[in-house]
Simulated assay, not measured.
Amino acid sequence: MGNRQDICILGGTGNVGYAAYKALEKSNYYFRIGVRNRDKAEKMNLYKRDNVQLFEIDLDKSSSVNEFCDGANIIIGAIGPSTKYSEKMLKIALEMKIPYIDPGGMYLKNKYSNREIDITAIVGAGLFPGVSGWLLYSELKRRGGKQLIEIVIGGKYNFSRGAAIDYVEEIKENTAGVPMACIRNGNIVPASSMVPSNIISDVCGLAFLPYVTEEIQEIIYTNEALNIDAYTAVPKEMFTTLNKLYGKNEEIIKYLVKGNNSNQRGIIQFKRISENETKTIFIRGSNPGDLTGKILAISANAILYGKKKRGIFTMANYLSDYPLIDKLKGIKGFEYREEVQYA
């Protein structure tokens, strides 16, 4: 094969998987696209190039998966729900010694922390988790001293059934974070403020829940992060409906999948407040699923052309020295604004 690079994408007909392919197709890669139904995928006519092969994949049948992955350079796992499939995909990558990238799978970081890992695996490689953690981690590395960091993540976006199931699993046991909490002196404590301060117009009209995500917990336990106010932001009508449906898991899934936001936007508002200045960064993605696929593509290139590290990493950690924002600025639908106010 020489210098040929083969990329396997599991979940090729989904929004995230297809966006990852489109972001990578201009490079001289060969693609193996894993789909649940090959006939349906062929009728969708998404993959027309000679360097693309379609595979009908059943993750419960190792023989089809082994043929799909054999000799590949990287596996991108874009199948949901993450709670059901992320570990299965990671195990395949480990068995076949192929680097792996997943937009979810944050729980795998701790689950496999004491095991010897012979590959590079990046989890939480999306918008949030992903870019949100990268911003926090990068700012913590640049600045020390006493400061308050405020981060708001969320927006308006469409849920796939897989994403909706993940959401239900997360809120059922609070495995993805701690609601109504913030960070003070490096410890998780009850939230000191129920709403973010000085929100910008793009965030107005959303409801807020103080929420220390699993991604933020990972960062504060390995860095000197003293004071953080973190919030999840969703449309007010969604917040009200989810409260009414609390505990009715299947109804929540149906509601989330049924919702159709034609004006999608994923947002991150980041503020670092110190004695001398307030730095605000605002990130917006017009289609969060599409942007997540492109972030997976950036992570894939970072693994293929960067120095390899063995183990399971969050994207925030693995790409901490990578010019992620510069890469994202060249992507259609990505908006970045930065403002500094001096005291």
Rank of each mutant, 00 (worst) to 15 (best):
M1S: 13
G2F: 15
N3F: 06
R4E: 15
I7D: 10
I7P: 04
I7T: 06
C8V: 14
I9H: 12
L10K: 05
L10G: 03
G11E: 00
T13H: 00
A19E: 11
A19Y: 07
L24D: 08
K26T: 14
N28G: 15
G34H: 01
V35M: 04
D39A: 07
K40Y: 07
K40P: 03
A41Q: 04
K43G: 06
N45G: 09
D50Y: 15
V52P: 03
I57A: 00
L59K: 03
C69W: 01
G71W: 13
I75P: 11
I75F: 12
G77K: 06
A78V: 00
S82W: 00
T83V: 12
K84Q: 11
K84T: 06
D102M: 09
G105P: 13
M106T: 04
Y107L: 14
Y112M: 06
I119G: 02
A125M: 08
P129C: 04
S132R: 01
S132K: 01
W134Q: 07
S138K: 14
R142V: 11
G145S: 02
G145Y: 02
I151Q: 03
V152T: 12
I153L: 14
F159K: 01
G162L: 08
A164K: 05
A164P: 13
G177L: 03
V178H: 00
V178D: 00
N185M: 09
I188R: 01
V195M: 10
I199Q: 10
C204L: 12
L206A: 01
A207W: 05
Y221R: 06
Y221S: 05
N223R: 00
E224A: 02
A225F: 01
D229R: 13
A230N: 02
K236R: 13
T241Q: 09
K244S: 13
Y255G: 06
Y255Q: 04
L256W: 01
N260L: 14
N260D: 15
N261D: 15
N263W: 13
Q264P: 07
Q264R: 02
I268M: 01
F270L: 05
N276Q: 11
E277I: 01
T278D: 10
T280E: 14
I281W: 08
I281R: 09
G285I: 07
G285T: 06
L296H: 04
I298T: 10
S299V: 14
L304M: 15
Y305T: 13
K307Q: 12
K308C: 11
R310V: 04
T314Q: 10
N317Q: 15
Y318R: 08
Y318N: 08
L319R: 04
P323A: 03
L324E: 06
L328F: 09
K332V: 11
G333N: 11
F334V: 02
V340F: 08
V340N: 11
